[in-house]
Design a protein around this nucleic acid. Structure first.
Lengths: 139, 139
DNA sequence: ACCCTATCTTAGACCTTGTCTAAGTCAATG
DNA sequence: CATTGACTTAGACAAGGTCTAAGATAGGGT
């Protein structure tokens, strides 16, 4: 994740304590926190960090392509630091947990040009939904 | 769309003026309004209809499987009356317009069991993103 | 080493989307 | 056509997110 900070500095980012902390919270794979969860964890590392800063920083990381925004259910967005490996998501309908998954094949080629209606199609997201083992056991 | 009302009545729905109006607004294909847009149009037909009723009615239509909820961008959910034909969505990144599209093949089979992590997978959504012809022309 | 200043951070107001409540209204059954 | 449980209403409330104006600071220039 220090690569990330390095990469950002060369792109003109000012390296503040707050940004370091947000990057640190996002570190690790298969992390898909909401902005508030990220804020809660950041506060433990830097008590005076504000909600606005966390939102700003996440927004910047998204524009820079370092982090992906995942809008799952119309509730809080989640942030996915695994932006450099193509992957899709598997979401538990009950508890909202997200797993990264790697389907076979390229979903873009499944959309013939007659089904593109003149759009310049630039990406696809595939979202699998189901019940995770824990929630399936409870049901 | 009167089929819809008929179907709902046989399922114990009380047929009120408000519900008729919401169904009427949803009528037509390729309509993907937000709840507020539906409310605005419903008010033109029935000025005293309240926001809460529109939300209630949409929620009921979704639970009954007559209408699909589409969470595209973490902003307002959109409602898709085309629930009886399997389809996916193509969304303009600039203006938010949604088109129904029909990709070839079944995206579920692209997820091998080794990538399911014990989940009971019950559905997939595929969302294509790009620029619609209008927005591409402006850019 | 230490200014300087553009950039960053902050608290809190504010906005949008959606949910809830308690009181009043009405569709449809008998 | 009276009754009643389901439906609707206005408005308060809640969650998630954005914006603003004032203060703080990273890092380049000297």
């Amino acid at each position: 994740m220090s690569d990330l900070l390095e990469r950002l500095r060369t792109r003109g980012w000012r390296l503040t304590a707050q940004r370091r902390v947000v990057a640190q919270v996002l570190d690790g794979d298969h992390v898909h926190f909401t902005a508030d969860e990220i804020h809660a964890r950041a506060v433990e590392l830097l008590p005076e960090i504000s909600r606005a800063t966390v939102y700003n920083t996440l927004g910047e990381l998204v524009s820079l392509g370092e982090v992906l925004e995942v809008s799952t259910d119309g509730r809080a967005k989640r942030y996915d630091p695994n932006a450099h490996h193509a992957h899709q998501h598997l979401i538990c309908q009950s508890c909202g947990t997200i797993r990264d998954v790697h389907p076979t094949g390229d979903p873009l080629i499944a959309l013939p040009s007659t089904e593109r209606f003149g759009f310049a199609v630039s990406g696809v997201e595939v979202t699998y939904r189901g019940l995770c083992p824990d929630c399936a056991a409870k049901a």
